[in-house]
Design a protein around this nucleic acid. Structure first.
Length: 380
DNA sequence: AAAATCTCCAACCGCACCCGT
DNA sequence: CACGGGTGCGGTTGGAGATTT
């Protein structure tokens, strides 16, 4: 089933490239240029998959690539762009001359994401953890937060990494970095004490089990390498999935992340206030982007959460189709509600605020990233 | 000094899109 | 329109080197 492999994996060399192999690629490209990578290994005398050759060239051998450390300005730009468009590494890389999407992705995963977490910023939503805690408390009815595990203090309450660009720290929009996470949480929700890690959330009583999987989906996406946590004490077992094939008749047409849906109040009229963080740039700035329905996506929404819990163990599994993460739909939050009429009324009532939100975000991004709005900006 | 652990990043994987046939 | 090959993309892995115990 599915697509056959591009080459016989058992007969091609894999792993690190040798200088000799690099030289062959360079020689081939200098003589023939780029094109039809499938035939490159044979023509260049390499026992490699064509795809591997292309990757080696685009990520490492291209003469226009930088190989030095990221500059503070680059760090700042990555963070800003990630905040605006999410993990569209190729798009972000296009704004960083000499950097590849792989470079940017690796730098984000190994450095910037951790920096933000240490500073109390959720790297997915770019919101202070405190705000998320507060919002989560609001929607789940969390009141008993006194049992937060102090042992978790180390993960997020540690000293800020002072290698982090001072330019970023002094950017007004990141001024929240100057506060510890504890301060932030106290500010947003005085009832919360010693918030330290996402893990601690698993200790909370679950008042609305329909919302829990969505929350953990986003947590999982914040921490891609989520592994069983021995410090958690969750006591739930729940499986959640939402796929296009299972979607209700009402096709959701707004695009925002699961977190943003979750963090909003699903029954109020303000649910779209936080949803515009991760729109597609191309859609965001398309001529039709002001139309609510222009946000409609055909992408498969396929989130799969599996939480198995004992007193000392939980794990999360997230399986998301390529575009799904960026186009998370409200299906995610309403999967178990099969009342199509409710859905229709729900979306109808929120349409105006949704449009307003889009327009507001549009203006915000216009002022924040004018260069990206230039016609020459190549989204795809 | 050795072992264990961590960090970083090159490379791989699989899926989706594009485009020619 | 359907199909298939080539390419782009984002998520994940493996292992070398660095750091800590």
């Amino acid at each position: 089933m599915g697509r056959p492999p591009c080459c016989d994996k058992s007969n091609v060399k894999r792993g690190l490239w040798t200088p000799e192999e690099d030289a062959k690629i360079l020689a081939y490209v200098s003589n023939h240029g780029i094109g039809n990578w499938t035939s490159v290994p044979k023509k260049a005398g390499l026992n490699r998959c064509g795809k591997s050759c292309r990757l080696r060239w685009t990520n490492y051998l291209r003469p226009d690539l930088k190989h030095e450390r990221f500059a503070p300005e680059e760090e700042e730009l990555i963070i800003k762009l990630h905040k605006a468009i999410g993990s569209r590494w190729s798009l972000i890389a296009k704004k960083l001359p000499g950097r590849t999407d792989n470079d940017v992705k690796n730098y984000w995963n190994t450095k910037l994401r951790k920096m933000l977490q240490k500073m109390g910023i959720d790297p997915v939503t770019h919101k202070p953890f405190s705000q998320i805690f507060s919002d989560f408390g609001n929607i789940s009815g969390i009141s008993n937060t006194g049992n937060l595990n102090k042992s978790l203090n180390t993960s997020l309450m540690s000293e800020p990494d002072h290698q982090f660009s001072s330019a970023i720290l002094t950017t007004p929009e990141h001024s929240c970095f100057k506060k510890t996470m504890e301060e932030q949480v106290q500010e947003y929700n005085p009832t919360v004490t010693h918030p330290t890690s996402w893990d601690f959330l698993a200790q909370f009583p679950v008042h609305d089990t329909k919302q829990l999987p969505l929350f953990f989906n986003e947590v999982s996406s914040s921490c891609p390498s989520s592994t069983p946590s021995s410090s958690s004490t969750s006591t739930f077992t729940q499986s959640y999935s939402c796929q296009k094939s299972q979607a209700p008749l009402i096709t959701p047409t707004c695009t925002f992340t699961c977190t943003e849906f979750l963090l909003s109040d699903p029954v109020s009229s303000t649910e779209f206030q936080h949803q515009q963080e991760q729109y597609d740039f191309d859609e965001m700035f398309s001529p039709t982007n002001s139309s609510t329905m222009a946000m409609a996506q055909n992408d498969v929404s396929s989130c799969n959460i599996t939480s198995t819990g004992s007193d000392d163990d939980w794990y999360l599994n997230r399986s998301v189709g390529r575009s799904t993460y960026d186009h998370g739909t409200v299906n995610n939050g309403l999967e178990e509600n099969n009342n199509a009429a409710d859905h229709a009324a729900y979306y109808s009532s929120s349409a105006s605020s949704f449009v307003d939100g889009i327009l507001d975000k549009d203006r915000e991004l216009h002022s924040q990233f004018p260069p990206l709005l230039d016609p020459s900006f190549d989204c795809y």
